[in-house]
Design a binder for these strands. Sequence first.
RNA 1: GCCCGGGUGGCGAAACAGGUAGACGCAAGGGACUUAAAAUCCCUUAGCCCAACGGCUGUGUGGGUUCGAUUCCCACCCCGGGCACCA
Length: 811
Amino acid sequence: MSSNADRYDAQAIESKWQAEWVRRGTNTFTEAEIRAAEDPFYNLMMFPYPSAEGLHIGNIYAFTGADVHGRYWRLRGKTVFEPIGFDAFGIHSENYALKVQTNPNDLIPRNVANFTRQLKRVGGMFDWNHTVDTTAPEYYKWTQWIFLQLYRGGLVERRDGAVNWCPSCKTVLANEQVIAGLCERCDSVVEQRRLPQWYFKISQYAGRLLDNIETLDWSDTTRKSQANWIGRSDGAEVDFAVQGSDATVRIFTTRPDTLFGATYMVLAPEHPLVDAITTDAKRADVERYRDDVAKRDVVDRKKAEKEKSGVFTGGYCINPVNEARIPVWIADYVLMDYGTGAIMAVPGHDERDFEFAQRFGLPIVRVIAAPGATATTPLAEAYAGDGTLVNSGEFDGRSVADGKRAIVESLAARGVAEAKVNYRLHDWCVSRQRYWGPPIPIIYCETHGAVPVPESDLPVVLPRVEDFKPDDSGISPLARVREWYETTCPECGGPARRETDVSDTFLDSAWYFLRYPSSDRDDIAFDPAITRKWLPVHTYIGGNEHAVLHLMYARFVTMALKDLGLIDFEEPFAKFRAHGLIINEGAKMSKSRGNVIVPDSLIEKYGADTVRVYLMFLGPFEQGGDYRDQGIVGPHGFLTRLWQSVLEAQDGAPDAIVEKKLHQTIRQVTQQIPDLGYNTSIAALMEYLNVVRGSGRTARRAEVEPLVVMLAPFAPHIAEELYQRLGHNGGLFDSARWPAFDAAKAAEDAVEIAVQVNGKLRARLVVGVGASEADVKSQAMQLENVARHVGGKTVRKQIYVAGKLLNLVVG
RNA sequence: GCCCGGGUGGCGAAACAGGUAGACGCAAGGGACUUAAAAUCCCUUAGCCCAACGGCUGUGUGGGUUCGAUUCCCACCCCGGGCACCA
């Protein structure tokens, strides 16, 4: 009978060990320890945006999964650095601040404090000595410094551009933040405006960002998303002479093999040559069409389903392959910001061109014949597949691939074409006409133009502004703070004005992993020796929603810093894994549905350890899981039974069967945890405890102690407590070793053989491990059920898989 | 339309490398303990047929390869996510 004091009291144990870890400095490093660390392992997780609602179950799921990983490697002997911080700048925070009419300077620290409390309560192995808050001047000083480094490297440019403008957020959005024409934050229809903006020239790195993907230990999904986003297409640029003029129109195509099928051309309505090509007779039509398009918003324009529209310019170009005269149209299905803003239209082999040609009665010519088709087989729809060139003069009979090469070669020899690779990746617009971000460190001087703020003047502190509401002037709220933006030119001392835009939040998070280990230093962004020791990050765990943007930007900044000689690696995250999503009773969680799980009350009821184990047990970590209220009692019961078994455990040799199971469990768990196989690891630990407790026997210490250690990554508090009660005073995470696996002890001496007749299971047979095939067969034939199904017929064939199965094929 | 995930008991899920489908957990049913309940412990639990031995069916659908397919191949359906007139 257990006394009251011996009941599993999660709350008491958890607060005891959280305090104890702080007292012992278990989870935190000093700067000296960071520098001296042996076998370092940088375990990174995506830092949260500290919302007013506090941590949600999805955050806890993600952090716990990453924490399990870190704790495991620590027990395996690595020095694990596991930092956490706050991504607290940005539109998200600012919009919320506007909504509740509180200054973000007051709001964010409260949220950060609340998050910190919750994060501590969950029992993460976080190094609170090395945290970052992107809104702290000590941090964004270095964000501004990064901007200046890229500027110095020629990777930053201010230019006028058509930018995506969100009328609701009242700011410019990067292309990546526009989802199907809508603002990713507020779903408003995005408009286009022309404004001067700061750009990072990420597109210069497109090829490298793409090529490096192969070298990364990232999940396929994430790698594919990155590759798709970069969007490489191999093709050619070809010059078409404008009839009756010296001008040429340069087009981009991925199908130079279909040049003979080009029956017209299309320019984007904004294309600079439109005016020159348009004839007087058509000028009015063209003007009208361009006005129409300009009025239409981007959503409309980018909608694929929309019926094609366009207008004939009256002008013609000459197809360089056959001197054919083809009409030039303008249409909004051709976009100015991709390729050259002009295409040759091959309706026979491009779906969009086909649709357009049908609508406007333009000729459709077949130049590719699929097997079974000939040059004269009519086209009922565009044929984009493989085949042989036809109606293509001297190139007839070539394959698509061969034709591409040959035609480009032949045109290149005449100087009217060149092979060309295009990427969809656009330059990164980092300007935001908002308040809540790091001011871009640039000063405008009447004589010197845009001048970077000298590094010694950093940070450019974001002033506290009470009226931080953006308006639709397209100018940042900081432009209303005269005493802030009025300054002097760093070059000449003359009157000057600060840049009043702030930078994109994604810049804050594009380098934070460099800051963590060096956050003791206030004189440098990242210490070279520390950075060499700890980076690249060993494992990075985070959400799939950042598979494209955040990861791409972080890779770009890292690559750029390497090229600037500031670091010596160019990929920041050696291994990245995305966790899945938690849903609730089969439904997505959302405030509007009212089914958001509140972690605080769960932790209060069952303790953090139970919540951690349950979350990790729900399903495969990379796939997410379905949270069900009822389910949590399972893991809670498991911890309670473990508690009991350990407390009543006796000395003495472990039972042989239990010991065998123990080593099998060690093998499985040791293998699976690094691959994030948490649900099956926990199942294995449960199974092992069931064996230990089998038929009501009392556990031996030697049986349960390794279990306690293996459970520690999942349930660190109860594990510490039990480890102490088993007689160790050094602290589990400070002194315990991961249990060693002994193959000899895990080996089975008998195996169960499945006996099949004609592939159907008819019996199971237990034999010694070394049993021979003949032995197994003769024993099997004696089994009544087997004999009956063989039924005296001859065994035509037998398949024997040692230790697994015997299949007798009878005829 | 394209690119990823995924589809297995009442539910969440397991199944290494083509070899005994359903581990582990929840729920449900039965039992023990209890005055009773809670808690705890034990047993049963894919469906159908059978008194039992045992048999048949079964991993989204339809084909195929194989002695043997949740696993490999082909075609398709459904769910979730991402991209989407990118030439």
